[in-house]
Amino acid sequence: MTRYVMVIDQRRCIGCRSCTVACRTWNDLPLDIVYNPVLTEGVQGEWPNVRRNWLPTLCMHCEKPACVPCCPTGASRKDDDGTVWIKYDQCMACKACVNACPYGMRQQSHLRPRLHQYIQKCTFCRDKRQMDPSAQPYCVLTCHQKARVFGDLDDPNSEVSKLINGAETFRLMEDLGTGPQIYFIPDLGGTAQ
């Protein structure tokens, strides 16, 4: 079986937002849609003993996605390889899934015509991978820092398997039981002043 996951290495991310722009550019997203915001709580601590981390995010492609069962039309769905996606021509933009997602990763553009709305979210670049099964999502390709790694967790030789097995990782809001498939490697080092 294939089980696509992404590992995000906070030790490497420097918050340049290239992934965000690459995603919205190559996926031709409306301006107000951001699939993969790079978040940061800003500089924390007491000057000058401070530190800062970035949290690049995207759809968590949950094992038990809250957004799929709540969809009345069946547009929101999950592939066998773990990809959660939306079949746009079945969506009617009721926004149930938008409100169901605990990560806020589903969005509706207000820049589209009022009556032609649908809900959008990251699909691990499903269109691209369908054209070329070995392809990587755009956010991964464009990352100079190689902070985003995409791959098959069921393949023990994949880079994601090695990273997840080799370093401490965490996932976001695990307690909600959604089984998010995005693993973060925290930046535990600090800046010595």
């Binding site: 799929v68 709540c70 009345p72 969506c91 009617m92 149930a96 709305q117």
Partner: peptide, 15 residues
């Protein structure tokens, strides 16, 4: 977002 296709709302049992 697409009122004209509201009938899609009746499709899926889990929702």
């Amino acid at each position: 977002g697409q009122p004209l296709v509201f009938y899609r709302a009746f499709i899926k049992n889990t929702s």
